[in-house]
Amino acid sequence: MAWRLSVTHSTSFQYESEVSASFNEARMTPVNTPDQFVISHDLKVNPFSTVFSYKDYFGTEVKAFDVQTPHTYLEIVSQSLVETNIPALGNLNASWDDLQSDVLKNDLREYLSFTELVNPITPPFELRLQDTPLDAIHFLNKAMREQITYLPGSTNVYSPASEAWEKRAGVCQDFTHASLSILREAGIPARYVSGYLYNGSGEIGEQVIGESHSWVEAWVGHWLPFDPTNGNPVAEDHILVARGRDYHDVSPLKGIFSGGRSRKIEVTVSLTRIA
């Protein structure tokens, strides 16, 4: 039975001195997939700005806007109403040999290469010793929480996998980057998924304060989503927004501004199950 979730994602910036112009791109629009249907989405910017939309290379809906009147604050409120289902999984029985195929390695090259953020790390286990790639995923999904402690503040948005790995601490972004690094090293194509996680009781109408979240999709015959941060299956409580090679490709908000000085950022995400 599908869930209907409402998400409000607000971001506000406070600048110490006046900003004369800023240019931004938001990737906050949930995407339509066979398992997820976006009923409505709206992005508001204050000070008022016209918003231009386009679909990027990875298929993510991007909202671009600029603010050209001098301002000391910037608020972005993204509101979505989404219907989610438990993802229907395809056949996941690829063998290690299947993953060695030239065609696959060529077509999924972007999800097999290291990046600035998904850089090599050395786990104390060898994924390839698992019987099948699917077993490897199950193993990894469990192992990550034994290796890394969830500790907000231990890393920042620019931290590569190796940093969190050394500290053995991080947030969902680090769990995701580290998992991607280990998977790609083992030859399993894997991509970064960003979105929202509903972590309430499931009671209809109850508003829950959440956060933007990230998890992994690995290719083991088909794409298989899993959530190494909490080890739970990806289900109706996950809302998918963007996919990419790493955080850089999906960052919810990126932009540049001129004239201002250091800032304070506040981000709140609230989710409500409507049905």
Binding site: S20, K254, G255, I256, F257, S258, G259
Partner: peptide, 9 residues
């Protein structure tokens, strides 16, 4: 005038 343009992330 556009002031000094220094863009930062």
């Amino acid at each position: 005038p556009i002031g000094s343009i220094v863009w930062s992330n």
